[in-house]
């Protein structure tokens, strides 16, 4: 629960501090944004403004409203495309994009004033003229586990998983 009182973090303070933490984050971001520089586009859905039907709360392809798209620099992993069939008997084959796993620095999101919610959309430019969309299935908002902290000091990045968005669900840009 959020608390107005500030609690000093004294964990591992014998050899680690807030300055060290920020420095390590800066190193990491320099590598991610300066060297790797893989970008995705975040579409934050405006739940209150998207026109939905009263009963099911569903919106059509052109009815989803979102904030101004935000470009995020991420640690990008896409799974192998899935070779599947629509029918259980194996007929009507289709090749589906694999899920996305994105590593995003929390400080990057804070600077952009962006938040990733369950159901937001992620666009990835596969080629110069083709944008593909995923929808967020886990926004990774809890970052206090071991792997998301820097030697147990504080969480500093999120792991966001996304699944392919059906083409008739989201139009994008």
């Amino acid at each position: 629960m959020k608390n107005n009182r500030k609690i000093p973090i004294t964990r591992v303070n014998k050899f680690f501090s807030e300055e060290d933490f920020n420095l390590e984050v800066d190193f990491g971001r320099e590598w991610l944004e300066g060297d790797i520089n893989i970008k995705v586009i975040l579409f934050q859905v405006l739940q209150g403004e998207s026109s939905t039907d009263d009963i099911y709360g569903e919106a059509g392809r052109n009815e989803i409203r979102f904030k101004a798209p935000v470009e995020l620099t991420v640690n990008f992993q896409m799974e192998t495309p899935k070779n599947e069939s629509w029918n259980p008997d194996g007929s009507l084959r289709h090749l589906e994009h694999g899920n996305l796993t994105l590593g995003i620095y929390q400080s990057h999101l804070d600077e952009l004033g962006a938040e990733i919610n369950y159901g937001d959309y992620i666009g990835y430019a596969e080629t110069e003229d083709k944008m593909t969309y995923w929808t967020v299935s886990n926004n990774g908002i809890i970052t206090s586990d071991n792997s998301h902290t820097m030697i147990g000091y504080k969480g500093f990045y999120r792991t966001v998983t996304c699944v392919p968005a059906p083409e008739d669900e989201f139009k994008g840009i």
């Binding site: 939905t52 569903e58 919106a59 989803i64 919610n117 369950y118 159901g119 959309y121």
Partner: peptide
């Protein structure tokens, strides 16, 4: 909460009753 399969629609229905972790 009446649920359907659109993820953002689910969040749209629940955010009023959610905690800081949504």
């Amino acid at each position: 909460i009446f649920l359907s399969i659109q993820r953002w629609a689910e969040f749209a229905r629940t955010w009023k009753f959610s905690d800081e972790y949504k």
